Computed example of a mutant assay.
Amino acid sequence: MNSMYFTEEHTHFRNSLKDFLNKEVIPYIDHWEKSGIIDASIWKKFGDMGYFGLSYPEAYGGLNLDLFYMVVLLEELQKVNSGGFAAAVWAHVYLAMTHINKEGTEAIKQKYLVPSISGEKTGCLCITEPFGGSDVAGMRTTAIKKDDYYIINGSKTFITNGLYSDYLVVAAKTSPEKGNKGISIFVLDRDMAGISATKLNKLGWRASDTGEIAFDNVKVPTGNLMGEPDKGFSYIMQHFALERLIMGVNAHARAEFALEYTLKYMSERHAFGQSIDKFQALRHTIADLYTDMEMCKEFNYSVAYRLNRGEYMVKEATMSKLKSTKMADEVIYQCLQFLGGYGYMEDYPMARLFRDSRLGPIGGGTSEILREILAKIIIDKKEYKPAT
């Protein structure tokens, strides 16, 4: 563990988290992957351990710890070998809850953040739409004010925790004529009339409930508006830096997990009178893959360090996701090859890793979109600024 970023306390936390995951999560992963449903009782256990409150204020039940506790949580979650379970956790803690914490009123924080930290409620973030994809500014969902309510109509898709979460953080256009300058953020209760959800059948992330959500004249009190009206786009962009770093950390962690498993397999697998980790072609490929993984990991740690200091890290976090997710795909592709026929078998972990990893360059902004964002920053000298 890199002592530049991790303290002895981080190490103790990692060991305790490993014990918890080995006892409470790993024995049930295969069942959750097959059923597509995570046992809801696990969320209260996470809450009781404080894992949902690592980054949040003590006033709401959180621990107010530095971002490297988040990094440890993300890294260890990848080792349970269920991208869907890991996503269900971080989509609640670092997507939905981030907006509640940053833009929610005191009343909203008491109603949603407090039980989110304790594990009594889970949330989802609803931004992506069927016709918009990564084009946040092109969203069609509207929230039209009428007396003391907003009436929300539209749809969202590819929403992690989209079916079974207790509340939804929803982006909608309150001033459609203003384009991306007319988006606002709301929090909705799952049981509000007019909300319906359909489960999507995915290639990977099988344990998580990814859904398409429809809003049909949903009546939302004005008190459920978060932050200022029409400032939602800047809030979303500001929090994207954290989401992209999260996906970068997830990527280096699953690549490391794949490499460690593969190295163990290669040391035990014999061919032509020796273990296959003695063949030069394989050894040199492993050396290249491990180098790529370590380079991404060190870069991601540096981004986390600067983000923890309050720096605005859109460029670097975008680079983190772009490079790390591509690296993880390449590493896991090669690791599956090292296992030969066993890599293609569902009884071995690589097949699931292979499927789950493929979402990395797609979710949270496709690699193509990220390259265009970086091109604007690097070539066009565009400056992204935090919400004011």
Rank of each mutant, 00 (worst) to 15 (best):
V136L: 10
P229H: 14
F20H: 06
S118W: 11
L259D: 06
Y333M: 09
A271D: 07
A258L: 01
E268L: 12
V220M: 01
P221I: 04
P361G: 05
T285V: 08
I42M: 01
A375R: 15
E33H: 07
T222I: 09
G310V: 03
L95E: 15
D166W: 15
L54G: 03
K146D: 08
K382F: 09
A171K: 00
M1I: 05
A255K: 01
R269H: 14
G138E: 06
K146E: 10
A96F: 02
G194K: 06
S208W: 02
G248K: 00
S320R: 00
A251W: 02
S302H: 09
T157S: 14
G133Q: 12
V71D: 06
S155H: 13
G47T: 07
E311C: 00
N2V: 08
K382A: 12
E228K: 11
G179D: 01
G194Y: 10
A86K: 07
R309E: 14
K199R: 11
F52S: 00
Y384T: 08
S82Y: 05
P386G: 00
H270C: 05
K178T: 02
Y290L: 12
I195P: 14
I42P: 03
A86Q: 09
P229Y: 14
F279A: 12
N300H: 03
W43F: 10
E24P: 12
